[in-house]
Nucleic acid binder design. Structure first.
Length: 549
RNA sequence: GGGCUCGUGGCCUAGUCUGGAUAAGGCACCGUCCUUCUAAGUCGGUGAUCGUGGGUCCGAAUCCCACCGGGCCCGCCA
């Protein structure tokens, strides 16, 4: 829960005295051009005879509030300007007292955010990385607003893909030291081989053995999976992502949890040639057990969610949009058939495509996340060398690459497909992480170089660009709330850019070092607020702080 | 064929949930600004009947219907 001085709430209360059913959503905050907060009155006044009198009365009430500078009626909008000193102090008091704006109150709710969970059959490619980037930012966002968050990776080490990976190693590289490259090569060859012989029997046999708890096989497969998973975890760590919990899917088979699931579902099971399924209204049959008695993805996923529900109040899962149908079945089974009331929600994202079409690990035409990162890093270092020559700091290049990569995949609405283009990914101009980092550097630089001896802060002669910046800083808790409520970390990505942009406008219009002392003091404070809040939002979206660019 | 989803200047996007004041940015293009806290930047300009056609409404990019185009799903795969 976020704690801050909420002027919107105060205005809302004031309007409620005249219009008892006035909705909070009719208060528009931070829309440029029309006042800091605008009250949309039209809906409530349109049918009323005495609308003019009511709106005048509201206007008068609002003007009487101590924090309101001015309120004007235009086209059934009441445009309200807040006194800059009140916004300034609202931010300053919270930062001085707690070191952050807004302050946060720890929520007792335990939240699990599951992301990535890609089959360990190859290195992380940029499509899957979209999942990781969204998921990690979502987790950080939920944490920021006060939830107790744990991130989860569900390791699929028991399905068909995994068995094919194992088979590929056994068939094409047995005896060699298993590496990511070697395993991947075997995996691709195996799928080609299936096509050639027109049968997948070999892998089906493996799956059956696996589910019958063949200890040797399970341990061999896990060894192979662990090699791939290590690679994926390493890739994730280069972009600052660390997962708290890894849960191995095979665990639910070994411990017999899938059997428990079948037992609990038994009243709802139907039979079709020995295979078991449940009927879901509006959807089709959902099979939970094969004819040969082995379990299916849904079954194991149910077991996994039973486990998660025992530990968390709320479970969120980031998934590719192709899993939508699956999650409908899962949600129905968990709630309606098994009676769980824990909150279960999903964030779906559309795939990242190439200009040449889709990516596929099996077909070997995917772009590994790490190669994009490396290119970004090279370009960053190159640019740094242009500016600093041999003094260029390689660790800055790491931060530029990681931040750029994450921002590029996060800033879009997840439901929109992305076409990956190298020229876009490697662009450092415009709406990019670099612009945001650059504004951070400029602010840090001011704080290092400009000083003032006075303590009194004057609001005199505050400019439009300063007011704009101040207002946008104040908007942060509203954006956080909106982003968290809708599980949309991209709102914070857009906010950070907008904030950086407001700062840049202010920066270009004012030479702080040349201002009279009491104004300089105010502006230095403003720069401090900016840096504090920008860093706060950047922490969520994975943009790292640098001192020099 | 059925279901879901996306369609906003030449290109990439925000806004759509919760309808409301001149549709907000970036890239590219044209012009402007570095002896002054970092020009990866600034300021200004050109450029959009918000896929199409209907409907609801005082009011539609936003809601409803139909159609067109792209993506995804419709396995005893995951």
């Amino acid at each position: 829960m976020l704690m801050f001085t909420d002027y919107v709430e105060k205005i809302h209360s004031a309007i409620l005295k005249e219009i008892p059913d006035f909705s909070m959503s009719e208060l528009v905050v931070g829309q440029p051009g029309h006042g800091d907060i605008s009250a949309r009155l039209i809906r409530y006044l349109i049918k009323k005879e005495n609308s003019l009198i009511i709106s005048e009365r509201i206007s008068k009430d609002i003007k009487n509030l101590d924090f309101v500078q001015d309120a004007t009626l235009e086209n059934n909008y009441l445009n309200i300007r807040i006194r800059p000193s009140f916004i300034f102090n609202a931010i300053k008091e919270t930062i001085d007292a707690t070191g952050a704006f807004p302050d946060v109150f720890q929520d007792p709710e335990r939240v699990s955010v599951e992301h990535t969970s890609t089959n360990p059959t190859g290195p992380l490619h940029i499509g899957r990385a979209r999942n990781s980037v969204i998921g990690d930012s979502l987790a950080r966002l939920k944490k920021r607003v006060g939830y107790r968050v744990t991130t989860q990776y569900y390791v699929n080490d028991s399905g068909k893909q995994m068995m094919s990976l194992y088979l590929g190693y056994e068939k094409f590289h047995k005896g060699e030291k298993p590496t990511v490259e070697l395993l991947l090569d075997g995996y691709i060859k195996t799928y080609k081989y299936f096509e050639e012989v027109g049968s997948e029997k070999e892998v089906e046999d493996l799956m059956e053995r696996y589910e019958r708890n063949d200890a040797d096989l399970i341990s061999s497969v896990r060894k192979i999976a662990a090699i791939m998973l290590d690679g994926i975890s390493r890739d994730l760590s280069t972009i600052g992502i660390k997962v708290d919990d890894y849960t191995w899917e095979s665990a639910f088979m070994i411990t017999g949890e899938t059997g428990v699931v079948m037992q609990k579902l038994s009243p709802y099971l139907h039979d079709e040639d020995g295979a078991k399924y449940v009927d879901i209204p509006g959807l089709r049959k959902v099979f939970v057990q094969r004819g040969n008695g082995t379990s299916l993805y849904v079954t194991r996923d149910i077991a996994y969610h039973m486990y998660k529900f025992s530990q968390y109040d709320q479970c969120m899962v980031v998934l590719g949009e192709d899993h939508k149908e699956h999650t409908k079945s899962l949600a129905y089974i968990m709630k309606e058939l098994l009676g769980y009331n824990n909150e279960l929600s999903f964030v779906f994202y559309a795939y990242v495509n190439l200009e040449s079409g889709k990516m596929s690990t099996r077909q070997g035409n995917s772009i590994p996340m790490i190669s994009v990162y490396e290119r970004l890093r090279e370009k960053s270092l190159e640019e740094l060398k242009k500016r600093y020559g041999e003094e260029a700091d390689p660790s800055t290049a790491d931060k530029m690459a990681s931040s750029s990569f994450r921002y590029h995949l996060l800033k879009y609405n997840p439901s929109k497909p992305i076409t990956f283009r190298w020229e876009d990914a490697l662009d450092f101009n415009g709406e990019t992480a670099l612009f945001i980092m650059y504004s951070m550097v400029r602010a840090s630089s001011i704080l290092k170089k400009v000083e003032t001896s006075v303590n009194e802060i004057s609001m005199e002669g505050i400019s439009e660009s300063e007011k704009e910046l101040l207002l946008n800083l104040y908007l942060y808790p509203y954006r956080l709330t909106e982003a968290s409520r809708n599980s949309k970390p991209e709102i914070i990505a857009n906010y950070a850019y907008q904030l950086a942009s407001k700062f840049t406008t202010f920066y270009e219009s004012t030479k702080i070092s040349e201002q009279p002392e009491s104004i300089k003091k105010r502006q230095l404070e403003l720069v401090k607020f900016f840096l504090k809040i920008l860093e706060d939002s950047c922490e969520i979206i994975g943009i790292q702080k640098v001192e020099k660019l």
